[in-house]
């Protein structure tokens, strides 16, 4: 039986789905907001409480925190948790988006709408030198583009506003070196990460004391998995960028990746004609660097169903991870989030 992404489903996959979908032996839960009758918290309640604890701890212990807002699903969850952590107050920090100018147009529209709806202070920073030099993924390649328009731009923004703590939505299940990064991750005044010199994190006690010039990257979603993120978005009804849902979009196929033609800056190769295909994105970044997948999943349950069957991890769509085994660890040491 053909599946929506064109791959044939084999018996093993079906068995997996069968085991996933079989009715639970435990009774159905109370609403997520309230405690279960036995006061046993569910996995999402425990994750939510831990993240809120981290958000509050940073606000209490640092002078000038900021939340990195990348517009993706993880940022959506992190922002939602911040709204909860400080309610009825607004989160006492601004959002910062590092705009490479190559994000999907729908992402930018969603970003501005979200900030307006929630009444939050949104800072947008673009590397002015990079902009002046016309740095872009098509002309300079993904490595230079990422270095100048993301890593350098991020450092500029943190320095410019004097932020001493920045929340990021990274999860430990995304990548091997992240699995060993602390929730409070210290950076030198040069924004470098030293994986050999991390502070132990015991119980729920975080040591947020910084040396002069140091800043902290804080990852409140460290212990969430991709599945947890989707389940939480579903349960809490959190708005996400429509690009996550399947729709007919113009794409070209390059090096096995489906690249969406989001604007006319995309140079087409001779004979290359964008095709309308029903696609969606599992992860969002700069449009020329983000591959779409064929999909019919146009609702959250459909996305989650697809995820449960997927045998390809989400970062595969990202071109920057493929430059050798230790790629992410190197980028992080250089100051990448």
């Amino acid at each position: 039986m053909p599946l929506h992404d064109g791959r044939a489903i084999d018996v093993k996959d079906a068995a997996v789905l069968d085991s996933i979908l079989k009715p639970p032996s435990s009774p159905l839960p109370a609403a997520l907001a309230g405690a279960l009758p036995s006061h046993r918290l569910t996995h999402l309640q425990r994750l939510e409480a831990e993240s809120i604890h981290i958000l509050r701890e940073v606000v209490a212990e640092t002078q000038n925190p900021v939340m990195m807002y990348s517009i993706g699903k993880d940022s959506a969850v992190m922002l939602h948790l911040a709204m909860k952590a400080f309610y009825p107050a607004k989160p006492p920090f601004p959002l910062l988006h590092v705009d490479t100018t190559w994000k999907f147009r729908e992402m930018i529209a969603f970003r501005d709408q979200r900030a307006a709806d929630l009444g939050l202070d949104l800072l947008v920073h673009t590397n002015p030198e990079g902009l002046a030099r016309g740095i872009g993924p098509f002309t300079h390649g993904s490595a230079v583009h990422t270095q100048v328009m993301k890593t350098e731009a991020l450092k500029q923004a943190l320095d410019r506003y004097g932020f001493d703590a920045a929340f990021g939505g990274a999860r430990r299940d995304e990548e091997k070196s992240r699995a060993k990064e602390r929730i409070f991750s210290f950076r030198t005044d040069q924004h470098r990460w030293d994986p050999k010199n991390q502070r132990p994190e015991l119980w729920q006690l975080y040591n947020a004391r910084k040396n002069k010039g140091e800043s902290i990257r804080v990852f409140p979603l460290s212990n969430w998995t991709e599945l947890d993120i989707w389940e939480y978005i579903y349960v809490e009804n959190i708005p996400i960028v429509p690009l996550y849902f399947a729709a007919d979009r113009p794409v070209v196929e390059r090096d096995g990746a489906l690249i969406m033609v989001d604007d006319d800056r995309m140079p087409l190769k001779p004979g290359e004609v964008p095709q309308q295909r029903r696609v969606r994105f599992r992860t969002l970044g700069c449009y020329p660097l983000t591959g779409a997948i064929d999909s019919d999943a146009d609702s959250l349950p459909a996305i989650i169903r697809e995820m449960l069957l997927a045998r390809t991890s989400e970062r595969q769509g990202r071109v920057i991870d493929r430059d050798g085994g230790a790629s992410m660890e190197q980028k992080k040491q250089e100051g990448y989030f």
Binding site: I20, P23, L28, P29, T42, H43, L44, E231, Y234
Partner: peptide, 17 residues
């Protein structure tokens, strides 16, 4: 298929850690 996933998601909410 979707309603089956919804049942699955409801069940996930009582999952412990």
């Amino acid at each position: 298929g979707v309603s089956e996933i919804e049942r699955y998601l409801a069940a996930q909410q009582s999952k412990s850690l």
